[in-house]
Write a protein that binds this DNA or RNA. Structure first.
Length: 271
DNA sequence: AGATCTACCCGCACGC
DNA sequence: TGCGTGCGGGTAGATC
């Protein structure tokens, strides 16, 4: 599933492939993807893709007027293909571009969303995002303020997009392993040192993953569904029963707030 | 009233 | 083969 680094890769790749391309026709095969918005087609038709950015895991595609805000959720992918491309049953939105190519939105689970908005502040999801970890405002004091009354597990806190934007389940597991913090530690019990460690490790891990995505993308041309680039670097996520790389204790998997959580009970003891 | 929990969306993978 | 269940990001709505 696309995490922030993959979203960053998709943004960069889309920019190289469709910048300044005009949308000449739209086919909506599964309307819930665009929020069942009757005005979607008329809003985007004859507009060109001008800007490409990301906030958290949301892609923000700037048109001449307004924006397409996209969340790929678990399995959303974009493809840029020739007109004779065979469309399969998981393709839900087709944008016909002025150079004869098609921008396809493909999503096996149909969980992703593409919303047209006139102004950035019109998007509820974007509005509630917290700072990104690279924002100078995202410091210990900010985290202390945000976690002051939070008894939820630190793992759950990391997944809360209104605190730090862009951390997904895979990276939450990796961050806490690198920081040697037990995923079920209540958020308001984190020491200053632990909070700083979380910030440092989050930056480190996401930057390494973005770098990996950035280098691997060269082997892809039209397919933007780039996943698994960072897989070989994962230390605990998906490693149930495999030996911890530090102490060889088998990695444990358990549900924390309904999400699969992987950790080492020895290295991440403090709870 | 704010924090937290639960159900939901969806289709595939997996196990019995 | 067929059926039941788990999974997961974000959000609406319920509940603590």
């Amino acid at each position: 599933m696309p995490e922030l680094p993959e979203v960053q890769t998709v943004v960069a790749t889309l920019e190289t492939l469709i910048k300044d391309r005009k949308i000449v026709q739209v086919e909506i095969l599964y309307p819930p993807i665009i929020g069942n918005d009757d005005t979607f087609e008329s809003n985007v038709i004859n507009q060109s893709f001008r800007s490409f950015s990301r906030k958290g895991k949301f892609l923000i595609l700037g048109l001449d007027r307004g924006y397409l805000v996209v969340h790929l959720r678990m399995e959303g992918k974009f493809y840029v293909v020739k007109q004779d491309y065979l469309i399969d049953k998981h393709t839900h939105v087709i944008f016909h571009l002025d150079d004869g190519t098609l921008l396809l939105y493909h999503d096996v689970r149909k969980f992703g969303r593409i919303n047209y908005i006139k102004r950035i502040e019109d998007h509820a999801g974007l509005n509630r995002l917290g700072h990104e970890v690279w924002d100078p405002l995202c410091d210990i004091n900010y985290l202390k303020e945000k976690t002051a009354n939070k008894r939820v597990a630190v793992k759950t806190m990391l997944l809360d997009q209104s605190i730090i934007a862009g951390i997904g389940n895979i990276y939450a597991n990796e961050i806490l392993f690198e920081a040697r913090i037990h995923p079920e530690l209540p958020s308001n019990q984190l020491s200053d040192e632990a909070l700083q460690l979380i910030l440092d490790k989050t930056k480190e891990i996401l930057e390494a993953a973005i770098e990996a995505g950035g280098t691997s993308i060269r082997s892809y041309t039209s397919q933007l569904g780039v996943t698994g680039l960072f897989q070989q670097s994962l230390k605990v996520h998906g490693k149930e029963n495999e030996p911890c790389l530090v102490c060889a204790t088998p990695i444990v998997k358990k549900q924390v707030n309904g999400r699969g959580t992987y950790f080492c009970t020895v290295c991440q003891k403090v709870k």
